[in-house]
């Protein structure tokens, strides 16, 4: 029983990454109605940029500084990639049918994965200096790495910041207006074209941040974005498409199911997650916070 608290904490840690990944996916889906299959590839870009910067530039500099540099660079480069993608080939897709929208992001996923391989080669990149140098502390009777707490705080803070952006600022209100009714927003004089670009770049930047944030704990390898993408899909499915609250609750379900699944039902941890998702779907087809 004494370990229950630490299991909850582990679940929260996992939640924080799933949440951060699903945020970007959800924004793009909500504002533009496009399911971005290349989201995992953007996540991978963030991971590689961070691993490359932190791993090779670490010598002699302060850990926090280099970590911050790595995270910002990852957001910037992944965001820029998103920007380029949107302008060059996503934009002509808005008035095309669904199969083309999905297929073009599928193609983008393959191309970006290939591009990463061209730039960084096939091998893994290690950059664990921030994780190691932050050390561990005693928490609820267990040893716990400080970096995990840092990652959790950062990712939930990002979620909160995004919520502020969407609900309190003019920009956010316009974005929400677009996601509710595109034509009406356009009629009201919102320049949809640029908001699309902005939303896509924002989503891509968030994917890059998620990828960069995980790097100190694990090497960057090709295909690193596949599993987060699938988990983010599950979050979006059970939380409801385009809902921020849904993303948070969905991530919590995914994270805690995993943590307790590993502890108590290690044999069926993964099917358990899908089972939960399917049950939610059968009971509430539009997801927990979705609207039809």
């Amino acid at each position: 029983m004494e370990y229950v608290l630490i299991y909850i904490l582990n679940g929260l840690y996992f939640t924080s990454f799933v949440f951060l990944t699903s945020l970007g996916l959800n924004i793009i889906l909500g504002v533009m109605g496009i399911l971005n299959l290349a989201h995992g590839a953007l996540y991978a870009i963030g991971a590689f940029v961070a691993a490359w910067l932190i791993g090779s530039m670490f010598a002699g500099m302060s850990v926090l500084l280099i970590l911050a540099g790595g995270l910002v660079a990852a957001i910037g480069i992944a965001g820029a990639c998103g920007l380029l993608m949107e302008i060059s080939f996503i934009r002509p897709m808005y008035n095309r049918t669904l199969e083309y929208q999905l297929l073009i992001t599928f193609g983008a996923m393959l191309a970006v994965e290939g591009l990463i391989k061209m730039i960084w080669g096939g091998q893994s990149y290690y950059a664990s200096a921030p994780f190691v140098s932050m050390g561990s502390i005693e928490i609820v009777g267990s040893v716990y790495p400080v970096y995990f707490i840092f990652a959790m705080v950062l990712s939930f803070a990002t979620g909160f910041g995004l919520w502020l952006l969407l609900s309190k600022t003019r920009l956010g209100i316009m974005l929400r207006a677009i996601s509710m009714d595109r034509e009406m927003a356009q009629a009201m004089g919102i320049r949809i074209k640029w908001f699309n670009t902005l939303a896509f770049a924002l989503g891509a930047g968030l994917a890059g941040l998620a990828g960069a944030l995980i790097i100190p704990t694990t090497p960057a390898t090709l295909g690193i974005g596949m599993d987060p993408l699938i988990r983010a899909f599950i979050v979006v499915v059970i939380g409801g498409l385009g809902s921020l609250r849904g993303a948070l609750l969905g991530s919590l379900i995914v994270g805690e199911t995993r943590s307790f699944g590993v502890a108590y039902f290690p044999e069926i941890e993964l099917p358990l997650l899908f089972l939960v998702a399917v049950v939610i779907l059968v009971v509430k087809p539009e997801g927990l916070f979705g609207s039809k």
Partner: peptide, 20 residues
Amino acid sequence: TEYWQFAMGVILILLVLLLP
């Protein structure tokens, strides 16, 4: 080519853009 994935992705994007 070792970079077949990239080639495949580019072909796919071009297909959608130019030859829907």
